[in-house]
């Protein structure tokens, strides 16, 4: 458990220094833990666990857009669990449930074996359709068709910089729309 946390911190430091592959590995590694904790939170609030994936995606977006508030000299796990807890409470509140989420929910799931299956998420996908066309096309190209930024730029006859801007704006407004709903 300790080792896993240290590994996360190392990966996040590399990610903040610009290593996209390390960032990808980190997000992959934290997702099963976030999923298990979200299921547990939903179960405790008497909600069906099939909404867990929406919460996981919500947390991942927040991790991404708030990662500059992480202090690179601090361990990563406490920061991650604070973000995740905030999002989980928010999600349960939006479903009309007042519950206390213990930070230990996340720490405990660290020692569990990750489960393989992925339930489908619907909230992010639904909000995608409300984005401006250009942002949606860029997101679709990178997310669904796994195209690189370079290929996406070529496909839409945009500069790579413009693709990066559309991608970031798309993710930011997606998050804003999720919060408003």
């Amino acid at each position: 458990m300790r080792e896993r946390e240290d590994e996360w911190t190392g990966l996040m430091r590399s990610a903040m220094a610009g290593d996209g592959a390390a960032y990808h590995r980190l997000l992959k590694a934290i997702t099963p833990v976030l999923r298990a904790a979200s299921r547990r939170g939903l179960a405790r609030a008497g909600q069906p666990p099939d909404q867990a994936e929406d919460i996981v995606q919500d947390i991942l977006l927040a991790v991404h857009l708030k990662r500059h508030t992480w202090d690179v000299n601090a361990p990563f796990a406490p920061w991650l669990f604070a973000i995740a807890r905030n999002k989980l409470i928010d999600a349960l509140r939006r479903r009309g449930k007042r519950v206390f989420v213990n930070i230990d929910d996340f720490a405990e799931t660290l020692s569990e074996e990750p489960k393989g299956e992925t339930a489908s998420a619907t909230e992010v996908a639904a909000q995608l359709n409300a984005l401006p066309a250009r942002q949606r096309e860029v997101l679709q190209s990178i997310a669904v068709e796994s195209a690189s930024i370079k290929d996406t730029a070529k496909k839409f006859a945009m500069s790579e910089g413009a693709v990066r801007v559309a991608l970031h704006r798309g993710l930011a407004s997606l998050t804003a729309k999720l919060r408003e709903q």
Partner: peptide
């Protein structure tokens, strides 16, 4: 989603 976030790093 993870792939997309990583592309935005």
């Amino acid at each position: 989603l993870i792939r997309t976030l990583a592309a935005d790093n």
